[in-house]
């Protein structure tokens, strides 16, 4: 949806012109990662060597964390907090967002709290939940729930409002009935919004969890990043952050993008060609 491979890069880099189209995406992904690593190494060697460690020691530390298993212990704690909070938020937001899109009384009732919720800083939510619920697991779940819910509701609310009323009328003419309309018209219209909500909701969730862990818990990625910070180990901070980022990228590419490709098959099938 937001990305596609129709960009014609071969005009700029002639040697890529011969590559099959499906590889284009991966070639450019590779270039992107390569540029990132190159910039990092150049900065570490010559520009800010005292602030930025080289790739070598950081990747060695990343591997050590994985090999010893300590990374996975804390990853499990963080992911549990992210997913419990996120699923609670998702479970409430889907019906609420849909009802907001269908009934304008509910829309007016909930609109302002949602918009306030979207603009509240994550740090404030983290501090307040720690004050209210103490240094406990529940604090992480509640803070994810509070931060992610408004954002997910917003997506479903807008998605429901964008359902094509003409298709509903078509369904009515053919006497489809509500269960069939829900399955064939409403749900397929909402799927792209469901994926967008999952993507942004998860991103928000893990950011708040890391803050809560840093401020008030004794396990998790955020706690370990803070630990390394207390030791003033830049290598440690970077190794934990990068390892966790890689896991989140795996979720994005392995789960969300795969789902996205499946549900938008009808879109990519056409290749943008139109017959006369």
């Amino acid at each position: 949806m937001a990305y596609d491979s129709t960009f014609n890069g071969s005009r700029w880099i002639p040697s890529l012109a011969a590559l099959p189209r499906k590889y284009t995406q991966f070639v450019y992904y590779g270039i992107s990662i390569g540029l990132f690593l190159l910039t990092w190494q150049v900065m570490a060697l010559w520009i800010v060597p005292e602030l930025l460690p080289e790739i070598g020691p950081v990747s060695a530390e990343m591997w050590a964390l994985v090999e010893s298993g300590v990374f996975f212990t804390h990853l499990a704690a963080t992911l549990r907090r992210v997913f419990v909070g996120f699923l609670l938020a998702f479970g409430l937001s889907v019906p609420l967002g849909i009802v907001m899109g269908l009934d304008e009384r509910v829309e007016y009732l909930v609109e302002i709290p949602i918009l306030i919720g979207i603009s509240v800083p994550g740090l404030a939510v983290a501090i307040l939940t720690i004050i209210w619920f103490g240094l406990a697991e529940l604090t992480a779940y509640v803070s994810v729930f509070l931060l992610a819910t408004p954002m997910i509701v917003f997506n479903f609310w807008q998605g429901t409002k964008s359902i094509d009323q003409d298709l509903i009328k078509m369904g009515t003419v053919f006497e489809a009935g509500w269960p069939r309309m829900a399955r064939h018209i409403i749900l397929p219209s909402l799927l792209p919004h469901l994926l967008a909500a999952a993507r942004f909701g998860l991103a928000l969730s893990w950011k708040i969890v890391v803050i809560v862990e840093l401020l008030g818990l004794t396990s998790g990625i955020g706690y370990m990043i803070n630990n390394e910070f207390q030791l003033y180990s830049i290598v440690g901070v970077m190794a934990w952050t990068l390892n966790f980022t890689i896991v989140m990228m795996c979720i994005e590419f392995g789960l969300i993008k795969t789902l996205e490709r499946r549900v938008t098959k009808w879109r990519s099938d056409s290749n943008g060609e139109v017959r006369a």
Partner: peptide, 18 residues
């Protein structure tokens, strides 16, 4: 007013089944 996420055949079947 076709269902873009269903094939042409499935669009007809949607009406038939309804």
């Amino acid at each position: 007013r076709l269902l873009d996420w269903r094939t042409v055949r499935e669009n007809l079947i949607f009406a038939l089944k309804s």
